[in-house]
Design a binder for these strands. Structure first.
Lengths: 213, 213
DNA sequence: CCAAAAGTGTTTGATTTACACCCATGA
DNA sequence: TCATGGGTGTAAATCAAACACTTTTGG
């Protein structure tokens, strides 16, 4: 009838680097699924809530606090070598520039392009696919992109971030109009000079916690 | 550090009766939370997938097969009298007319109006609230209402169902246009005569499995 | 003065909303 | 013939999409 269930939390940590959506993976040095890449995660013991466990995992891997973290779904039977395993998946959006990856680990945490993933341990490819779909949908009516960007950013940077997740180019003028009309972002007094061209106004998110339109 | 985790599945079973959204609850005859109403659910052992466990629970309570069933989310710490409890919540949409509730049970399963719920065991009120929100959102771009209705139905019945979930009146002509333009429903050759007035054309869902627009 | 990215409006089509009258039936 | 709910179309407003030139700066 199976032993007591094993409950684990796993976290899909997204970031955008050079206009490409990336996900943080760790290398499995032990069984099962040895030598494959996998989503970071760990066993849940019950001494904290599932949300807390996912948040702690996120901090351990990236140092990121105050970013967007949401539960995705829960699957069972991920690890066929054991009965009664349950994995509660989360996803998070972090600013790669602020992240300090753990270096001391045996399983080198590393960013991977979402569009060029190898076959991953367990069914992690599927989990990541669903996470991308969910993030893309939520971009349209929430401010969750705040987690991916620094305090201040140009509209171009914001647009590049959106394009990386949605996998399609957006019209610059329409994007600008839409973003500003939502009230989710607002201009600051500062500009960024970055080359032989007109400097860009810097914007900020009006809130750094989740807002739904 | 806490015992091995207890994993349970719970199911929010919706139905519409007389134009009001209802949820199926069972009466707890034993500790904890004795004498309170609660969502049906049960311990998960690992011998089947979580989806299968939820589906089985649904069949046990209602006999309903082939209806819409979706995972909602997973919470921990619902039962403060135990450490390390995890509840995986699902929701389902069933046709009350086809349901045969279990009568032999000590905990009489019973339909309750969603807008008049007493304080329930554990945090079940919150779970139901979220389920209602999710169903309402999905109505707009899926055919999941097929679970709530019989094989054939009038457009008025469909509209009443939508209104019960969305909690707001809809314009009859616009509703009709929108529904038919999606292609999710189609007219049959039959009409229903029901009183001293023009008979209503009967419609059916073009698919009885989930379709997303 | 040249190259490079930033900034800005308008027009068109599509979608959504609001709204009122005739039709078919059973009693 | 009357009461009852079923069935239908159009106009206005809103929203989304397409599209090109001027501005500011550093070199």
């Amino acid at each position: 009838m199976g032993s007591q269930p094993l409950v684990a939390t796993i976290v899909v940590i997204f970031s955008t680097v050079d206009g490409v959506l990336q996900v943080l993976l760790v290398h499995r040095s032990s069984q099962p699924e040895q030598e494959k890449w996998a989503l970071p995660g760990g066993r849940w013991g019950g001494s904290e809530s599932l949300d807390e466990a996912a948040s702690r995992k996120l901090v351990e891997e990236t140092g990121a606090r105050g970013v967007y973290l949401e539960q995705l779904f829960t699957t069972s039977g991920l690890d066929p070598s054991r009965e009664a395993t349950v994995a509660v998946a989360y996803f998070a959006l972090v600013d790669a520039a602020r992240v300090r990856l753990r270096r001391e680990e045996a399983w080198l945490p590393k960013w991977h392009r979402v569009d060029e993933l190898p076959p991953l341990a367990f069914d992690n490819n599927l989990v990541i696919e669903q996470a991308v779909a969910r993030v893309g949908a939520k971009l349209e009516y929430t401010n969750i992109a705040y987690g991916l960007l620094p305090e201040q950013f140009t509209l171009r940077e914001l647009q590049t971030t959106y394009e990386a997740i949605l996998r399609q180019p957006l019209d610059r003028r329409n994007f600008r109009k839409r973003m500003l009309s939502t009230g989710l972002i607002a201009p600051t007094a500062e500009r960024r000079h970055e080359g032989a061209h007109r400097p860009a106004l810097l914007y900020r998110f009006t809130a750094r916690e989740p807002v739904f339109l």
